[in-house]
Computed example of a mutant assay.
Amino acid sequence: MLAFAQSDIGMVRKTNEDSYIFSPPHLFLVADGMGGHVAGEIASNLGANTIQEYIKKCKQQFDWEQILKEAIIQANAIIYQMSQSKSECLGMGTTLTAIYAEGSEIFWGHVGDSRLYLIRDNILQQITNDHSLVGELVQSGSITADEALVHPHRNILTRAVGTSDTICVDSGRFLQQPGDRLLLCTDGLTNMMSEQEILSICLRPENPQTIVNKLVEQANQAGGYDNITAIVVEYRD
């Protein structure tokens, strides 16, 4: 396995509210915080660290899909509790997209509009669904993916970690094949680049570090209106 991660503040924002966990060969996670002042940064960091600590306590377990769901539910409870106890954190939340790799098997858990992609056989497949207003419009066929990129309400989430006392977590699992690449990223990347542009970079015969650097560079060249976080994991048998 080869992997690399990078988080960039972008060209407009004054703070980076994204967080990530890069813990090869097993745990990889991206989170995009939301909330006033520093609350988004607090939410994403708290969510990411909660999941990492939860995973560490479950090393002897094997149902990693269920464990990821439980970890995200715990992160939701902790973030929500803090948002209710501190006025400066009221309403804060975060997206969370995480994978746990166990050999050739990938387990994933997801809430929000950060994304997990699988690149296989020259195809970019979005594994996660966006929990956002435009994501639901795309899924229903009301608008196209290209229209979603410029939709005026593209930043409205319909589900996030920490904004309610309960949370519904999407999850799943699949088997990797030699040559597969996985991309975890926040919407600071996907709002700046089309999926065809992302695919063209991810297909390059270069290492994950070069791929991630190029993705971030191109997102910034397109405007860099948001924080950008990307992790690329390449599976080798």
Results as ranks from 00 to 15, higher is better:
109 G>V: 07
106 I>N: 05
44 S>A: 06
139 Q>N: 09
82 M>D: 14
112 G>I: 00
119 I>P: 02
76 N>V: 14
95 T>A: 07
138 V>Q: 01
80 Y>H: 15
80 Y>T: 09
100 Y>M: 01
43 A>D: 05
38 V>Y: 10
84 Q>K: 14
97 T>E: 00
55 I>E: 03
96 L>F: 05
134 V>I: 10
71 A>P: 11
130 D>Y: 01
139 Q>Y: 05
104 S>G: 11
41 E>L: 01
95 T>I: 03
88 E>W: 04
83 S>L: 10
49 N>S: 08
55 I>K: 03
55 I>F: 01
55 I>L: 11
117 Y>A: 03
99 I>K: 02
64 W>K: 04
52 Q>K: 08
136 E>W: 04
41 E>W: 06
107 F>Y: 15
85 S>R: 15
85 S>K: 15
45 N>V: 08
94 T>F: 06
113 D>T: 00
94 T>E: 04
102 E>Y: 09
114 S>T: 05
78 I>S: 12
52 Q>S: 06
130 D>P: 04
93 G>C: 06
47 G>P: 02
108 W>I: 00
64 W>Q: 07
119 I>C: 14
106 I>Q: 02
69 K>R: 15
109 G>T: 11
119 I>D: 00
90 L>M: 13
133 L>P: 06
120 R>I: 11
69 K>L: 12
53 E>Q: 09
87 S>E: 13
115 R>H: 05
67 I>Q: 15
114 S>K: 04
126 Q>L: 03
86 K>H: 14
71 A>H: 08
49 N>C: 06
84 Q>R: 15
89 C>H: 11
50 T>N: 07
61 Q>K: 15
70 E>F: 12
54 Y>F: 15
72 I>G: 09
43 A>Y: 00
46 L>K: 07
49 N>F: 02
72 I>N: 06
138 V>A: 03
62 F>T: 14
109 G>K: 07
107 F>C: 09
91 G>M: 08
96 L>C: 07
77 A>N: 13
94 T>W: 04
92 M>W: 00
127 I>T: 00
122 N>K: 15
42 I>D: 05
63 D>E: 14
46 L>T: 10
132 S>P: 03
56 K>N: 01
46 L>Y: 05
75 A>V: 09
81 Q>C: 13
89 C>W: 07
58 C>D: 10
81 Q>P: 08
136 E>Q: 11
64 W>D: 05
129 N>I: 06
116 L>N: 01
84 Q>C: 13
71 A>Q: 09
64 W>F: 15
115 R>I: 03
53 E>T: 08
135 G>N: 05
65 E>C: 14
62 F>Q: 15
137 L>Q: 12
107 F>S: 11
75 A>N: 08
127 I>Y: 04
67 I>T: 13
78 I>L: 15
118 L>C: 11
105 E>H: 12
135 G>Y: 01
